[in-house]
Amino acid sequence: MVADLRRCVGCQTCTAACKQANGTPPGVQWRRVLDLETGEYPEVKRAFVPVGCMHCDDPPCMHVCPSTATRKRPDGIVTIDYDLCIGCGYCMVACPYEARAKVDGVATKCTFCVDRIDAGLANGLKPGVDPEATPACVNSCIAKALHFGDADDPQSNLSGLLAENQSFRLSEDLETGPNIFYLWDKAL
């Protein structure tokens, strides 16, 4: 996923769309938008930062899970098997991105709307291009700040955005390989 920080206006429509699509209870937001202020007056800057599960390349939540409920699919999406999860909460404290919460006894988090993606793929649609195969947060973004696709495919929309812009990922020093890329400026 790509989040263009230059375009995000902090409207929280993605948050609402996620809640609507996934039916998360009050207090649980799989997609959040942080409102970050930095600097001191008069040099204050403000940025809206969409966060959630980063679907890391090397997810600590998966390694610590004692029940193997948390897994990583071949396409990179990190999932939770609610029928295996014992609700120990170890994944919650292992995640550096505060992406998980224990709800009604099991761990929950953003799935990148995996059911939509799978249903779309089964119908020959392309995630990130066809709305029926794309996460609800991306579809709902009014500013076209959120994008979804296959970063390993050089022809994908995501690869194009990453080539044309400079990007970073959050807390890269932890070496979890987070998979939400934040665009902050044009490429040099």
Partner: peptide, 28 residues
Amino acid sequence: AVWLETGRKLRALHVLFNPFTSWMTREA
């Protein structure tokens, strides 16, 4: 005490499923 913290207590034996990477499984 930690069993009381788990959300699905009757699935406690699932804690033994991941000895390859989970220290919680290894502790069990």
